[in-house]
Design a protein around this nucleic acid. Structure first.
Length: 291
DNA sequence: TTGTGTTTTATTGCCTCC
DNA sequence: GGAGGCAATAAAACACAA
């Protein structure tokens, strides 16, 4: 009851009214309107409906909870009430019929205009304030439910996305593995081809590796050309193994670029002259495959 | 029966709107 | 400034396991 707000409290129903009500009426301590004039549908007036007598107990007093009223009143009045009612009023729940009626009304519109509130109160044998409170609490429950629904929806969407993501990761790993296997095969084949070439023909590299390598057959060369002193230094076991190392590196497989800086990326994409085992791509159809 | 958790009814204080 | 809405909360009623 903030800011001096005065709420009319409950004073409804014929049931649950103490037998000594007539005494109160006789003593004119109850407002005559306490007894509902237009009797609502009996089914709404169950024995468990909320009962309050505050409005009837006073005419010009602030309308508060009967318990609080007890606190506020002078002893004589308290004693009088005690005498009349013997025990404090108990909070009663609405009947099933009342709740069903209110639920239907709530479905139509969850906001309550004054006219509708009064009509509902009349129909249900409740105080308009009770109807307003019920709608307020019902809106709060609806909001909570709605939040739970939204949460469930978002959770389902998240789970679905996560499942998709996990599937994609698996597929990526599978493809990576496939690429590795194919690369191994390719490497093996290439090594075999080179070995067979070296066993039949002793090649000579007559130029620097930056230039086109020239493989010359033994028959086409003079003896002095194949003297050990004339074999270029880069055509040694060391050079050969460095070529193989280059072939073993991860290139040409695309690394996970999202994790790489530009420098790292550059290092994984050597210049054309150094890729494909040091041979220019365009001169070797086999190596010119793109991955 | 009793302790405990949940639901429902009602109050309070603050805020917004007219 | 009053009416009404909402969030937070109290308290009674209810459900249920131990």
């Amino acid at each position: 009851m903030a800011g001096g707000r005065v709420y009319p409290s409950n004073n409804d129903t014929t049931d649950g009214v103490p037998n000594n009500l007539s005494v109160l009426l006789q003593n004119q301590r109850l407002h005559p309107l306490f007894i509902p004039g237009s009797s609502p549908s009996p089914s709404f007036l169950g024995t468990r409906s909320m009962v309050s007598f505050e409005d009837s107990l006073k005419t010009n007093r602030p309308k508060r909870s009967i318990f609080k009223m007890f606190d506020e009143q002078e002893n004589g009045y308290d004693e009088y009430l005690e005498e009349c009612f013997h025990q404090p009023e108990k909070k009663r729940r609405l009947t099933v019929d009342q709740i069903q009626f209110l639920e239907k009304s709530f479905e139509v519109d969850n906001k309550l205009e004054p006219e509708r509130k009064i009509q509902l109160a009349k129909d249900l044998g409740l105080q308009p304030r009770q109807v307003a409170i019920w709608f307020q609490n019902r809106r709060a429950r609806w909001k909570t439910k709605q939040l739970e629904k939204d949460y469930d929806t978002l959770l389902a969407m998240y789970n679905s996305l996560k499942a998709d993501y996990d599937d994609l990761l698996k597929e990526k790993d599978k493809l990576k593995e496939e690429v590795l296997q194919l690369t191994d095969k390719l490497q093996t084949k290439e090594n075999e081809r080179r070995n067979s070439e070296f066993s039949d023909v002793k090649p000579l590299l007559l130029q620097e590796p930056s230039q086109k390598p020239i493989v010359v057959s033994m028959a086409a060369c003079k003896q002095e050309d194949i003297d050990s002193d004339n074999i270029p230094q880069y055509y040694s076991d060391e050079f050969h193994s460095s070529l193989l190392e280059a072939a073993d590196s991860s290139y040409p497989f695309e690394p996970d670029q999202s994790d790489l800086s530009q420098d790292e990326e550059d290092s994984l994409h050597p210049p054309a002259s150094l890729s494909n085992f040091g041979f220019p791509v365009e001169d070797h159809p086999f190596w010119s495959w793109t991955y």
